[in-house]
Design a protein around this nucleic acid. Sequence first.
DNA 1: TTGCTCCTCACGTCACGTGAGGTGGC
DNA 2: TTGCTCCTCACGTCACGTGAGGTGGC
Lengths: 272, 272
Amino acid sequence: MLNIGEFARLGQVSPRMLRHYDEIGLLQPQNVDAVTGYRSYAVHQLGRLHQLLALRDMGFTLAQIGDVLHEDPSVEQLRGMLRLRQAQIEVTVAEEEGRLRRVEAHLRAIGRTCAVKLQDVVIKKTDSLRLAEGRGTSPGFGSENLRPLFVELLPEVLAHLASEGAQPGLLVAHYEEPKDDGSVVLHAGFAVDRQAVTETDRVQVVDLPEVEVASVIHRGSMDDVAPAYESLVRWIEDSAYRLAGPSREIYHECMAEDVNDNICEIQFPIAR
Amino acid sequence: MLNIGEFARLGQVSPRMLRHYDEIGLLQPQNVDAVTGYRSYAVHQLGRLHQLLALRDMGFTLAQIGDVLHEDPSVEQLRGMLRLRQAQIEVTVAEEEGRLRRVEAHLRAIGRTCAVKLQDVVIKKTDSLRLAEGRGTSPGFGSENLRPLFVELLPEVLAHLASEGAQPGLLVAHYEEPKDDGSVVLHAGFAVDRQAVTETDRVQVVDLPEVEVASVIHRGSMDDVAPAYESLVRWIEDSAYRLAGPSREIYHECMAEDVNDNICEIQFPIAR
DNA sequence: TTGCTCCTCACGTCACGTGAGGTGGC
DNA sequence: TTGCTCCTCACGTCACGTGAGGTGGC
């Protein structure tokens, strides 16, 4: 019979761990002295300890290990548990590799620019969104092209919503894929949630689906949005995602007294 | 200004998380109502939240994120943190892949045999060990060859230790690489820790170094040790380690009344 | 007597999730 | 009045590490 220190040394574990395994019933000493509380382990318990450590090294929780040790599962059950564990580890590995790619994308990003503040690209799922919107074609991106279109479309949408007694929510814009000549179709409108809004030939109601996006927050005038767009796109390509559609712009704040306080979230659907 | 629910929805986080970040000073609301305690967030705080989430997605702890957000590190410092994080993730990935290989080795092991009980292979570091030992050559492995050698060598070692007033510790055997003709040199002796023991031409004192080993516990007669050896070797090869030397046998229990209660630990040094 | 090993609490870890119990505005 | 959102505790999670304070045999 071995005392706890000797047994711990043989098994290369700490006495505290053995006490813990005793406490939760995973591996109880052969004998506990009724007076002193001293634990004694039989040499053959080293085999049990080995099983326990082997399962722990495979990443099973102590509760699962308890099931295996006490319930003596069939070969089939054991195989099932191992397969499940295998699948879970594969998921973990994939997650960590994703993390790694994101870190490396940020590393390359700070290598490329002097702007320190681009580490705010975030992957998230958007909520689905119902918009009342107007549409128009612009000769290209750039606020010199887009601004007049916003000024044309938005009052029409607002007037229509007012005539229907609906409250406009967030201002949202999204785009269609640019044509070969560089022209783009802009959709600009307001979130209307579940309010009933009828359509006209100038105002449509559309549902933007939930999608996974990469997103940045741009603060300031939309005249200066280009760098944000560029770093977002490069970040996405860098981190082994790919662009899965044209962008959306969500104007969380677009009427600040100071234009530098405007806040616009730029989202690109991504895949992979 | 947004209340906590609105802000949480925009950032795709839970209100509880925002309260937590407030509590630990990571992201405090623009305003807290003195009477009701209601938190209000400014839209531009979405940018801060994005930074926070981006850092979290890279696996930084909240304490580290706090440092980045509050202390506005230089590009060089930021690069250093990212590099460190990158290295840590690479370690994690390597560990998880090791786990995966161990799980797969066990899966193949239970596919190969009907014996359910071989899941007790464990990787560990041995303690260094000082032995007083005798040496002899056997025509091969197998207890029919080795047993006479043990019977010859061990009494000599014991007698020598007794004459020196030293206490014999654990019985340990180890081997040299087998020769081409299949013969092996057996070293068999007893642990002597730091006791002073002089050497003779029949009894040598050696230090076995600390090494990383794969280890199984064999219970019963050494006549039946072959399957344990075989499964240990296959397991090692299977899990992308490789054998880094000949085996050691540690006889934790070798004089049980019932031979089936003998306990022997078999270790193979491994590398990679 | 001093050192060593053993014992039993019990707190701390990390980033929140999940009630419990209560409040304020539509 | 009912629902909804907000609030503040405070426990639970997982596998131990790390004291604190005390005991027993050489």
